[in-house]
Write a protein that binds this DNA or RNA. Structure first.
Lengths: 331, 331
DNA sequence: TTGTAAGCGTTATCAA
DNA sequence: TTGATAACGCTTACAA
């Protein structure tokens, strides 16, 4: 009953043609305020809602944007993803768009391909970027508008990212300014571009201070607890001022390992993280971290994609919305 | 080029009418194997894909199903949600359906309402059920087909759930069989129906053994670390054989608190969880837990919803796909 | 300012 | 077994 009313019904009821109704609704073309108002009232009263599918067909649009969710996302990635999703939703739903999810594997883009080929979306957002990214590669050759969240070496892509380089550099600089010179860096999955960026940020701070980090204290590709534990052993043996972890997962592994070994933070080891989380904020001791607003990032990506869909050829953007939060773990 | 080919193009190229082509593709109505084959080959060669929007308009369908993602999902819920999503995707994409996400708050169902009223979905899956669930309430009165994952006291809803009652009861029974009589139960958010179900499962096992749990050892509504810590103090004072936590989050909080206080598991306190996770499997000690296949759950929900959309009026289902995994923490 | 009519790409109902 | 032709609900030239 409520869902079945169409633009024809309105036209008939109000004694005007359906194109008039259409214009009154969309506001396109000249139309008298009087009829606009009549239509508005009728719509209000009978709770008319346009049929998105029919609108889509008429305009060759779907009003859906595809968001790619990697099937191998782990628990910590999911929180990031969920926030991006919220941001995307914030930015696109007011414009009548919705999120169509595409679950894909690293090298299996079939699901994404379906979405694109069957005209189910007007554009796509990639929520992470990999080196040698199959999804980005496919989208590029498909002609479908898309943007990526995160940075890619491929400069043809429209990228939306936090300024991780500046952010990581800034946290490192702050630590250097506190007099800590000997810092170790613990990084994860090397196929993620952000891992590399974070390392560069770390090194940049040293460079800007006229110093050089100790290459022996940079540990990359650490992805599991045993490996992290081993690095911790090494770091404790060598002796460092601060151990900087690239994300909360690594930080968590280090912290739990420290507890087991009765290593006191910050007395025996100072700790900082390039990615904040409520866990790090509430743990004891609370951990110094870089706080980044992923929701805003998602919103920016959504807006940018809508621009692309509208035909603009925007540049990517780098958002500066991080803050360094100093906590007990580096005091 | 590849994306622009329509059913008309095929008809013209093959010298037949577009209705013939349509039939050849869908297989509906009588049609000669010869023409079917010709069409099939052409489609293959030129990689024709039907326009989902046009199909949708013609059939009054969208080939999208809405999946509701609560905006207040926390990190642990997200893993569950992500797995459900995979299962849903597994079951619906082979049938041409895709997932449209709706991010909604507890009491704010606007986004869901939009999806329904604008005809953007053919059905909806609710991935959690609350007492007094606004989303379920709205969907019911909207007439939109939907199913819920998890159990609800509202028996009119089509519910897909694991047999949590049996599962929790079974884990508890196993512990009772090991001779542990004095068990404490630690439960979380009381507005989630599953919390209540788990408690009942716990009690059921006692009942079946002709015993009764100690009401003083049942702690409900524990949602943060301080509260969990306080319960731990209480439990240690009273002395118990096993502390059973309802989910991995609570279990994690207890474990980290035990580390801080140097309480050894299982020597000083045995621990079990009604929800498994890789964290519990890999921690030291590994924790006894109930393992549940959420992906299969999502798949079942997807299938069930498609039945409803197809016009069936199926019963809800209870899936028995859990297993009790005994680990070091209860030895 | 408004109405007419031709799409948008399919499916579905008739005849042929 | 096939082919016209009318939907599906909306947008958009082009006329009036």
């Amino acid at each position: 009953m409520s869902g079945k009313i169409t633009i024809d019904d309105i036209a008939e009821a109000l004694g005007m043609s359906k194109s008039t109704v259409s214009r009154a609704i969309s506001g396109k073309g000249r139309i008298s305020p009087a009829t606009t108002e009549r239509v508005r009232q009728y719509i209000e009263k009978y709770n008319y809602k346009p049929n998105a599918v029919a609108q889509g067909l008429a305009q060759s649009k779907t009003y859906n944007i595809g968001v790619v969710c990697p099937i191998d996302y782990e628990i910590f990635d999911l929180r990031y993803f969920h926030r991006c999703l919220q941001g995307i939703s914030d930015s696109i739903t007011p414009r009548g768009y919705d999120i169509l999810m595409s679950m894909i594997g690293r090298s299996d883009v079939d699901n994404l391909r379906r979405l694109v080929e069957n005209h189910k979306v007007d554009g796509v957002i990639l929520t992470r970027t990999l080196f040698d990214d199959k999804a980005a590669e496919y989208l590029k050759q498909s002609g479908m508008p898309f943007v990526v969240i995160g940075s890619s070496p491929d400069k043809e892509l429209i990228q939306i990212d936090n300024d991780h380089l500046a952010a990581c550099s800034e946290l490192t600089s702050v630590l250097l300014a506190k007099g800590y010179r000997r810092m170790a860096l613990l990084g994860g999955d090397g196929t993620h571009i952000i891992t590399e960026t974070r390392r560069r940020g770390f090194e940049l701070a040293y460079k800007q201070a006229g110093l050089k980090p100790d290459a022996d204290l940079i540990y990359m590709g650490v992805e599991d607890h045993p490996h992290a534990a081993q690095v911790l052993t090494d770091v404790m043996k060598k002796g460092v001022d601060v151990l900087v972890c690239m994300d909360e997962k690594l930080t968590g592994m280090v912290m739990s390992e420290c507890r087991i070994r009765h290593i006191r933070i910050p007395e025996q080891l100072r700790l900082a993280s390039f990615y904040n989380s409520s866990f790090l904020a509430n743990s004891s001791p609370a951990v110094t971290a870089l706080d980044i607003d992923d929701r805003r990032l998602g919103a920016a990506a959504g807006e940018k994609l809508l621009e692309v869909i509208a035909g603009a050829q925007p540049e990517g953007v780098v958002i500066r919305n991080y803050q360094v939060i100093l906590r007990e773990s580096t005091s």
